[in-house]
Design a protein around this nucleic acid. Structure first.
Ligand code: FES
Ligand code: FES
Lengths: 145, 145
DNA sequence: CCTATAAAAGACATTTTTGTCTTTTATTAA
DNA sequence: TTAATAAAAGACAAAAATGTCTTTTATAGG
């Protein structure tokens, strides 16, 4: 289907939305997030719950509660989200599905694929969760189809 | 999970194996292919059946029958396999799951992602199905974990 | 024609992903 | 303390991906 799984797509969009909103200390409810990133609310709830367990986002229950991200969290790389959801094989594994990627026993795509995989890793590790806050607030970037 | 789906991984490995074997006119049975690329035989059967309908590989039933690839087929790009299985969105779509990738309404990852996606497309379009035949026959490259 | 072979086709079964709905728990504020 | 709020948690349900097994169809060769 897509490049990332639906779960991962929702997670990336949601975390970026929460990041932008919490840049000025605001907490956001699951309903609002789901609305703004165009995802099923309850399903997103589960996803955010997991990311919260991993410490990638924070949450508080009750009135005035909601999801938010601590200042330090805004500096974490997107790779943390992708790895939390897709696992490490997505970013390290052999493109042709061999049990592990190796120089000694390479699959046919190894040489080209490892280059692309490396670039993907670089992108996801250099890009931080909070990096797009201003542009998201300005409305220059889109999160909802 | 993996970068490509299991189905696509099996397809890539199987087609390359068949390509190498049919470079000298030999046909191979499903059992042999499944064995050599380490995949469930019946499931692979379905996959190859589909690729056969698409004309990406050929097959004949009966004694001395099996799967093979016509000389022209060896020149086709791997992209044909990936597109047949994963669909076009995998290679063209927005990385964050927006309904389509656009310059005008970009998602936060758009600039970096389109570059990586382009490289992936280049790799899959420049690489042909028969390109690894010699090395596969020599045993320099691996298809079974 | 008959038989053996091997893919095609179809029927299921299992697992994973994706999605919905309800109940519980924690927190705030009145 | 009570009521309202909002996430956490749990129970399901639907759909898709993955996998297994059986039957049918086509073909080569005796
Ligand atoms: S062995 Fe397949 S990508 Fe390295
Ligand atoms: S809009 Fe998301 S990759 Fe182009």
């Amino acid at each position: 289907m897509g490049f990332f799984s639906k779960t991962c797509e929702y997670a990336l969009r949601a975390v970026m939305y929460i990041a932008a909103q919490s840049s000025d200390g605001r907490k956001v409810g699951i309903k609002e997030v789901a609305d703004r990133i165009n995802s099923p609310a309850h399903f997103l709830g589960k996803i955010l719950q997991n990311l919260s367990k991993e410490g990638l986002i924070q949450s508080t229950k009750g009135p005035q509660g909601g999801f938010y991200i601590e200042p330090d969290g805004l500096k974490r790389p997107l790779a943390d989200i992708v790895i939390a959801i897709e696992g490490t094989r997505f970013l390290n594994g052999c493109g042709m599905g061999l049990s592990y990627c190796s120089q000694e026993n390479p699959c046919p795509l190894h040489d080209d694929f490892k280059e692309i995989r490396a670039r993907l890793n670089i992108m996801l590790h250099k890009t931080t969760i909070g990096q797009f806050n201003e542009k998201l607030i300005q409305g220059v970037l889109t999160l909802n189809k």
